[in-house]
């Protein structure tokens, strides 16, 4: 467990104000021990205009702090404007692009390198081989994969010189839709949504009628209610060849501390179990999960 293991801060999935957005990335630049940062709008194209002007400054500050920048593409692309967003990302050939829908890949020429985001269906060696041949340099595997698949695909990735990454922290993306659920539960239509998703910096909790925490909606996206945490599995993930760990941004000002915990475990300065307890203390009231990795149902949480 050496510096070979890197940390990626995934794209912010939620609708924060432009000031919150800028402050968050300024703090990440100054304090968070992450190696690379994904920037850009993945969930809803209507949100981008609110902070697009802030992106260049954030890139500059993060790069000055030694962070690698990745521009993330939109997950579900239907409108002309959304296709244009992909085309616009392809223009920046000095910055790596994260492909979150194959629309983005279609825009990148053969030979151009790219990162594959967790929303692309990479379930097997054949798909990985195709993406490798197209220029993939890093693949964040889908959160749904069990350890057995991660182990096999990490070995395969190493063969192609690709960095295998796993979704290691945060609410997991479970579904994307043409319909906006934030608008729906507020009695609004998507085209006149009044940006009600901005009220929920970590998504809107969806509970069962028996009061069980279940899911969280984030505009057109549905997330898990639980926060995935693979802190206690880092040892065997590294042994299996995983080289990068993705943390998904959440509100509450704790992301720097979360990144520090992961960094300590990756550097073998702290055990996974101890870090798991620290994470629970850091985020009181948060339910965690690692069920997908453990080959169970995704919401399950098994201690090491």
């Amino acid at each position: 467990m050496t510096r070979n293991s890197t940390i990626t801060l995934g794209p912010l999935l939620f609708n924060w104000t432009a000031d919150q957005w800028s402050d968050f990335y300024a703090r990440i630049a100054d304090e968070a021990p992450v190696d690379r940062v994904c920037l850009g709008e993945v969930v809803c194209s209507k949100r981008l205009p609110f902070y697009i002007d802030r992106i260049p400054q954030a890139i500059e500050r993060l790069q000055r702090a030694g962070k690698e920048i990745i521009l993330s593409s939109l997950a579900l692309v239907t409108l002309k404007r959304e296709r244009q967003m992909c085309a616009d990302l392809a223009i920046h050939d000095d910055l790596e692009v994260e492909v979150n829908d194959l629309t983005m890949l279609a825009r990148l020429g053969h030979g151009r390198s790219f990162t594959v985001g967790p929303l692309i269906n990479v379930y097997n060696e054949g798909t990985l081989a195709y993406l490798a041949q197209r220029g993939a340099t890093r693949i964040c595997l889908p959160p749904e994969l069990p350890f057995a698949s991660i182990e096999l695909l990490s070995g395969e990735a190493a063969f192609y010189g690709i960095e295998p990454e796993v979704w290691a922290f945060g609410r997991m993306p479970l579904a994307i839709s043409g319909r906006c659920y934030h608008a729906r539960v507020h009695g609004l239509a998507k085209d006149n949504c009044q940006f009600v998703c901005g009220k929920d910096p970590d998504g809107l909790e969806v509970d069962t009628l028996d009061g069980e925490a279940f899911l969280a909606v984030n505009g057109v996206q549905t997330l898990s209610s639980t926060y995935c945490s693979l802190l206690e599995d880092i040892g065997r993930l590294i042994s299996s060849g995983v080289t990068s760990f993705r943390l998904s941004p959440h509100g509450g000002g704790k992301m720097v501390a979360v990144a520090e915990l992961f960094r300590r475990v990756l550097d073998a300065q702290m055990g996974g179990q101890e870090a798991g307890h620290s994470l629970a203390a850091l985020l009181p009231g948060t339910a965690f999960s690692n069920g997908f990795l453990r080959g169970r149902y995704g919401a399950a949480y098994e201690r090491a």
């Binding site: 997950a75 579900l76 929303l119 269906n121 889908p142 959160p143 749904e144 997991m172 479970l174 579904a175 994307i176 279940f214 899911l215 549905t222 898990s224 069920g291 997908f292 149902y297 995704g298 919401a299």
Partner: peptide, 9 residues
Amino acid sequence: GRCSLSSYA
């Protein structure tokens, strides 16, 4: 093809 709600539960 982009939904893992079922496997989450």
